[in-house]
């Protein structure tokens, strides 16, 4: 492998919407709950400020801090799992969300990586991101969800 020292996953979807609408969908807690199985992010979005992904009952699934925030183009989050010991032990991963306008759609690229080989964290999130993105695309394009149940 080219780079055996890290683990990487890339998710790309094209959503027929505007960058501003997609940006709101990614950053507004109430909107996010609709496609993220009731979860939401808690942060002021200022670079350097704390960030948390909250379960419906208020516990933190993941925590970290905002590394970059450049509306409506790019968000980078330093992201650590909080609720599974073996994932938390891997430390911080890096989640980058990038928006690029393309014709009548926006290309959304989410890259989730960590500086260690065979990461369990990257493996664990790789099942979730496609469902979240399918839901987000469906919600923005047609107003309905693909997956109503938590995965």
């Amino acid at each position: 492998m080219t780079n055996p020292t890290n683990s990487n996953f890339v998710y790309v979807t094209y959503i027929r919407t505007t960058p501003d609408r997609l940006w709101s969908a990614l950053t507004e807690p109430e909107f996010m709950k609709q496609y993220w199985f009731g979860m939401h992010q808690q942060t002021t979005w200022q670079p350097g400020s704390p960030w948390a992904l909250k379960f419906t009952d208020g516990r933190s699934a993941d925590t970290g801090e905002i590394a970059e925030f450049d509306p409506p183009k790019r968000i980078v989050i330093n992201w650590r799992n909080e609720f599974r010991e073996e994932l938390k032990a891997e430390g911080y991963s890096r989640c980058t969300m990038e928006l690029e306008p393309q014709h009548d759609a926006v290309k959304l690229t989410i890259t989730h990586s960590i500086d260690r080989p065979d990461s369990k964290l990257i493996g664990a999130v790789s099942g979730g991101w496609p469902k979240i993105l399918s839901n987000l695309k469906s919600l923005l394009e047609s107003g309905t969800l693909v997956f109503a149940e938590k995965f």
């Binding site: 780079n3 996953f9 998710y11 890259t111 991101w129 496609p130 993105l133 695309k137």
Partner: peptide
């Protein structure tokens, strides 16, 4: 798949989103 530039190299990543859909 998604092609990402990393330095001088072009790396190919599987994109699971369309298969999921």
């Amino acid at each position: 798949i998604s092609v990402q530039r990393q330095g001088r190299e072009k790396l190919h990543f599987i994109n699971p989103v369309p298969i999921n859909q």
